[in-house]
Amino acid sequence: MTDFILPRRHLSRRTFIAAAAGTLLLPAVHAADAKAKPLVFAHRGASALRPEHTLAAYAKAIADGADYIEPDLVCTKDGVLVARHEADLTETTDVAKRSEFASRRTSRKLDGETHTGWFVDDFTLVELKTLRAVERIPQSRPGSAQYDGMFQLLTFEEVIDFVAAQSATTGRLIGLVPELKSSTYFAAHRLALEDRFIATLAAHEYTRRAPVEIQSFEVANLRYLRDKLGRRANLRLMQLVGVGAMQPSDVIAAGGKLTYGAMATPQGLRDVAAYADTFAPPTRALIPLKKDGSLDAPTPIATDVRAAGLRLETWTFRPENRFLAADFRNAAGEHARNEAGSVAEIRRYLQLGLDGFFTDDPALGRAAVDG
């Protein structure tokens, strides 16, 4: 990776000097250190209720008590980090209806799968700002879909500024849990995320003092960030994992053999602890489902994560019946919201001793933790 530094005009003199020296003064307290309760991470904002990664989704999440909000990060053609869950814009924007961009529809291999659509790295920020966000699963979330077309896409810097403003307004320190998406893909397109990300953190007073937990499904980018950022009071690194024989994209690209299943073993977890602070498997890796869709017995992963000295966080709780274990569904139909069932399911997983969890509906996560 090559070093990337924001232009000096974006930095205060004090920040520029500190960034250049590689020393940023940080507070001694991380949000989690001041509270014993599990952290509620707003997955793409309050994405069960508002189109994901919009100001509306983030505002709703903060109002509903989220401890952290999540901006997934991808990169535009002109090198700007923006908040989108994936490089493919097709499902979460109105790009397919925009005739001026029809010729940019193409196919790309992204994280091991071929996608056909419109990709963020084919758009400048100015072009991207003409698009509007839409609900990804309108059949399950019609309440969110009513906001289609209302909100523009956000840069990472805009997200930071918004969270800082909300923190100042509410008097509550609100964390950020950014995910670097598809690092290997963007590096191959000469749009490496990591140094842009580091420079953005250094350019903002809020991210020099507020809690930031950086996540990725890849390994090399987290190792790189640990080397560049060191161990700081307000920063943590989260290793996201899939299950079984699945592999991180960077491992595949390098011809390696490491699997997520191997990473979840006692030895694998000790290896992760050398560069990360948190291990974050999907919920069903912690408590899998039986054939009838109900919860089975917990796996050893939670115990093994603790033994390795790592934090345990998980993803993602969603409030519709279709996403719940059979134990917690009601008779309202697969697309129906089931708030009581979602809270009950979260509480079952909290019995494992979670340090934090992602939820599409932070109000329900807050209820599960505080109730």
Rank of each mutant, 00 (worst) to 15 (best):
P142C: 05
G255A: 05
G45E: 12
L39C: 13
D3T: 15
T155E: 03
L286K: 10
E100F: 05
A210L: 05
V251T: 11
R226V: 04
V243F: 07
T92S: 13
A363F: 04
A168V: 07
L55D: 02
Y349L: 07
Y260D: 10
P142D: 06
V74G: 09
D72I: 01
A36E: 12
A307P: 01
D360L: 15
D148V: 07
R329T: 14
T116R: 10
V251Y: 01
S103F: 05
Y349F: 12
L286C: 01
L235M: 02
R14F: 11
T2F: 11
H115P: 02
L240T: 01
F317V: 02
V159M: 10
A199C: 01
Y185G: 04
V219D: 00
P142Y: 12
P27I: 13
T90Q: 05
P288I: 02
H53T: 06
L128Q: 00
A63T: 13
L154Y: 04
R311F: 09
R108H: 09
F358M: 03
D304N: 08
V29A: 12
K228A: 15
V29S: 11
E205S: 12
T54K: 00
T92P: 07
D121K: 00
A302L: 13
R141T: 05
T184G: 09
A262P: 00
R9Y: 14
R196T: 10
W118A: 09
I252P: 02
D88N: 14
T2K: 12
L26S: 09
A18Q: 14
I62Y: 13
L26A: 09
A133R: 14
T184D: 06
R329A: 07
Q146I: 10
A46Y: 09
H115R: 10
H30L: 02
Q267T: 15
K37M: 10
V163P: 01
V82R: 15
A20Y: 10
A145T: 01
W118N: 12
F217K: 06
A32L: 05
A302N: 07
F357T: 07
G356F: 00
V305D: 00
G171V: 04
R208G: 14
S342G: 06
I160A: 03
L193Y: 01
T54R: 00
V82L: 08
N330W: 08
P38K: 13
L191P: 12
D111A: 15
R44P: 03
A307D: 05
I160G: 09
V126Q: 15
S144D: 12
